[in-house]
Nucleic acid binder design. Sequence first.
DNA 1: TTATAGTTTAACCATTTGGTTAACAAAGAT
DNA 2: ATCTTTGTTAACCAAATGGTTAAACTATAA
Lengths: 204, 204
Amino acid sequence: MRKSDKNKDAESQILDAAKNIFQKKGMDGARMQEIADEAGINKALLHYYFRSKKLLFEAVFTNAFSLLAPQLNKILNDDSSIEEKVKNFTFNQISFIIKHPYLPNFIIQELNRNPEFFDTIKEHPSFPSLEKFKTQVQKEIQQGILKPIDGEQLFIHIVSLNLFPFIANPLLKGFLQKDDAQYKQLIENRKTEVSEFIIRSIKN
Amino acid sequence: MRKSDKNKDAESQILDAAKNIFQKKGMDGARMQEIADEAGINKALLHYYFRSKKLLFEAVFTNAFSLLAPQLNKILNDDSSIEEKVKNFTFNQISFIIKHPYLPNFIIQELNRNPEFFDTIKEHPSFPSLEKFKTQVQKEIQQGILKPIDGEQLFIHIVSLNLFPFIANPLLKGFLQKDDAQYKQLIENRKTEVSEFIIRSIKN
DNA sequence: TTATAGTTTAACCATTTGGTTAACAAAGAT
DNA sequence: ATCTTTGTTAACCAAATGGTTAAACTATAA
């Protein structure tokens, strides 16, 4: 354990340790003892602050979602053009995930394991809504700015292109035969590559 | 019934059950007893045929990879144009994954959990190579058929657009507020939607 | 038929794991 | 100071889990 962490109060220290372990190993792979060790405290203290493994996990999960969701809202709820949105969104999202590379995989994986989990986050204040984005796409199509495309499909395209390279990191790294540094560079390039690719396809 | 038939019977029955459980719950979440129940046999028989959980899992994993890898080779090693390749590949891959929806997530997830796993599949006979695809992209760019694009990035684009909607199924289903039938339709539409989107971006 | 080798099972076992308890320490509150 | 609440720990526990064993069953070759 690092000394600078010793000052932090126990609860946030547990959350921090739990985040690391859960995001790397998932709910089933994580061990309470391992989290306690990472936090530098006794295992019983985990249960003192968070009654059970399940509750500790849920705390970490909603915490992680609270980081990701506002990122999504950026593209959906500002007033710039679709082109601007795509550009800023891909750049910002890829930059953000570079700093939190385990986040998308963690959320997606645990949502697959337990889909009812979505009900928990549906109530989240910054839960994204697609309505504005969809109507804006339609409007720009009518104005002749964009070629015809379904807003929902476009949304899926964008998120897929942004997140998949992180989720499939080991797979793609293997296929492309890149080492960590090379793959990092490849992703770095995608900050602009992806939006250019999208814009080229949808802009008139 | 001949001895070898019987072996294959029990063995493949175990593999089938293990596939179902492992793909739904992952290595850590799966229980040997549950696999035995699903296969309708005694738990000890699992260890008789596959010495340990780890070995059973590896059998399932390489099996799964053997299904997915040839799909990738289709786009990389035939002689059609890039446009044809993109069209056929997305259509075929999405059609294929619709029949095996757990497959991509399973492979990607377990590869994240244990990246050294890639060494096992690197030896696989149908392990995909990108060389042909990359040179073909460059050639078609020089011929003026395609706009300039990096072949590796294009490859990532394609796979991302194809696979992400399956991997992030619960997340996207939630964001888009679709039920299972509606989401299935959305994916069905992507069989052509994705390739059109790509072609529009790269073709001159 | 019987010996043999392969297959299947119930009962067990050792370890791991999430969770509890009871004692103890720190810090306010009176 | 002394009482009370809150925080922390070592030791413990019951259940679950991967794995083993020895016996029973089955098919077949001699």
